[in-house]
Design a binder for these strands. Structure first.
Lengths: 200, 200
DNA sequence: ATGTGCATGTAACTTGTTACATGATTCA
DNA sequence: TGAATCATGTAACAAGTTACATGCACAT
């Protein structure tokens, strides 16, 4: 029995399943590009991880490749998902994921807020708020672009557009909650500190 | 110059700063225990990481230890944070953290929802909702316990209780958003699929 | 000249997980 | 008799990051 497919492996299989539905293939480079633009918001990997992972997937029978020779550009390997790869992916998809082991730097800093000067804490939370507002604006722009394409309503459940829309919705809700939390903390600090001194 | 302190190192320093404020010390074992109960919700590490990390912190002058010999129990090393450790921690705390490289399995599965049967997708999202409702209930219970201790109002900004309360608030908001997202998706699937067939 | 895009890889290192290793006491 | 608590470590492995390595075409 070959080694277990990892989350990165399944990430690649998801792209190759999308390619298969569109009747195309993808190179390692294509996958690396795809992991930059929209997907990077919920999954991240470098090309140095992707090439070895593709080799592992192929050894496990999940994908195959054909070599395409090119002039003026380096040759490339175009990968496609196998039937077994698709079956394996489907079985993994419907399995509810566990809570991932938490490792959140901002929570850690929040947990040590009492060590900071109130003014420093305020600056930290305001900066976090600003950054998440920016990210929220990015997501809103993507939504507008998506809604434009689909006429403002949800695409059918079996379409890739549906998956994209609900994943985006997670991001939208997430950023809103994050901003809400920052506001809650900022207001708490101001309220509690307003008696003592003058807080900007 | 010694090696840079890592996020795990700062996590340990945060506990040791708390100990210092209370005039006590902590062993590697104590730190491992502390990382189990409340802190595990936002930071996670095993003892096999903690012992070497304490050695690194000591080599960097961030902590010191004294050996305590015990009968009937194994001897232990009690660590405390140094002045330099506290300074280094403070400097790190006020630095706004970057967006961590995203790696979220549930988002990945959501991004491939169109590959599942609608019924399977419904089950996946309902199960996620159920788990996050459970976690939310846990957090609500902790809040009630905390509010009981502090008489329902926020503790002062410079107290460790304040940090605990705002970190808990992040969890409360997070779980509520997560459940909201699950509901949004569940309702979308039901609405879109109700025409075609009978969806439970 | 310099940087970007296309295209594929390897090597060294860091971080984190799982398992190995020991050994006394207390509780069910 | 067996599991849990206290207490500290190491080793093997997996996952992820950074840097090394090559090389042509095209735009600035």
């Amino acid at each position: 029995m070959s080694t277990q497919t990892t989350a990165l492996g399944y990430t690649i299989l998801i792209l190759l399943a999308r390619c298969r539905a569109m009747g195309c293939e993808a190179s390692g480079y294509d996958i690396a590009q795809w992991l930059k633009k929209p997907v990077s918001y919920f999954w991240h990997a470098r090309h140095s991880q992707i090439y070895p992972e593709l080799a592992k997937l192929e050894a496990g029978g999940m994908v195959t490749h054909r070599l395409v020779e090119q002039q003026e550009r380096p040759d490339k390997k175009l990968y496609s998902i196998t039937d077994e790869g698709l079956r394996t992916l489907l079985a993994w998809l419907v399995e509810p994921p566990d809570f991932p082991p938490a490792r959140d730097e901002m929570s850690l800093k929040a947990y040590a807020t009492h060590l900071m000067e109130p003014q420093q804490a305020l600056e930290l939370f305001r900066e976090q708020k600003r950054r998440h507002q920016e990210r929220l604006a990015t997501y809103e722009a993507i939504r507008e672009e998506m809604d434009g394409r689909t006429g403002g309503k949800l695409p059918p459940v079996h379409s890739a557009d549906f998956s994209e829309r609900i994943t985006l919705q997670k991001g939208l809700f997430y950023e809103r909650y994050y901003i809400e939390w920052c506001d809650w903390v900022i207001e708490a600090i101001i309220r509690l500190e307003s008696r003592n001194g003058d807080l900007e």
